[in-house]
Design a protein around this nucleic acid. Sequence first.
DNA 1: TCCGGAAATTAGACAAAGTCCAGATTGCTG
DNA 2: CAGCAATCTGGACTTTGTCTAATTTCCGGA
Lengths: 136, 136
Amino acid sequence: MDYTRDNMAGLLRSHDINPTHQRIEIAHALFSRQEHLSADQVMAIVNTRHSETSKATVYNTLKLFLEKGLVREVIVDPSKVFFDPNTSPHHHLYEVDSGKLSDIDAGHVRISGLPPLPPGMVTEGIDLIVRVRRKN
Amino acid sequence: MDYTRDNMAGLLRSHDINPTHQRIEIAHALFSRQEHLSADQVMAIVNTRHSETSKATVYNTLKLFLEKGLVREVIVDPSKVFFDPNTSPHHHLYEVDSGKLSDIDAGHVRISGLPPLPPGMVTEGIDLIVRVRRKN
DNA sequence: TCCGGAAATTAGACAAAGTCCAGATTGCTG
DNA sequence: CAGCAATCTGGACTTTGTCTAATTTCCGGA
């Protein structure tokens, strides 16, 4: 994969998103790093050189990406949401003291014995978060 | 179990917490209901008749309970933390549209195939959240 | 090319959750 | 009762995120 800005436009189009300048920048920030970023971090990255994108646009765009399935939301820290450019099935490892968040491939993980869902409900996703901290 | 205010004092003492009036009220709110409550909800319950406990105390006390292992923190909603008086191993079912949160007993659930932890790290907890929504 | 409307972006006011602090209360213990 | 530590308090403050009304951008058609 090559996460150039040009390729971002195609990625956006393939997800039914009109590729504007700001959206390309935001997608580039997320995908070129392949990291979990908060809205704040995205804003800081996108506006490093000169202020280019407003707070409202960053939030709107991240929400749009979420709806269109381009990114995933990771809720591990009560104070902020992380956005994850990796949408393949996977879980998360969260280092509580440092705040570092990394992926656990879902390949070998098996979860069994979950009870049936309440009637009329469908699963939207299963989040598995392993919280770790430095030993002593 | 009998979650009277009198028994709360003993519960607090057994967790090495000095049982003050406010702490007993907050513990009572959580344990008599056996429900997941947010800090806001706790405050509303505790102050129904007349204002008795300040916001700062509610937050401080919930944090204290957390440290002492009296309650658990459940992070499923980006906008607020829930506190869970059930500290036995269990997972959570979260109804996305209604915000309703319920327990999944850990008894029959088995999680296997997790990769080894990074060196020098210990598990603090494994959170499994099943997110569901109403069909259609 | 010019026009008009739809889509997107913007600044900044606002809201809600949670933190912080300095001062007041409480409750021992001598 | 005096002194001291623990606790509680109101309120200012911070941070994350939302909302809105006004502007800008984009694009198709005349």
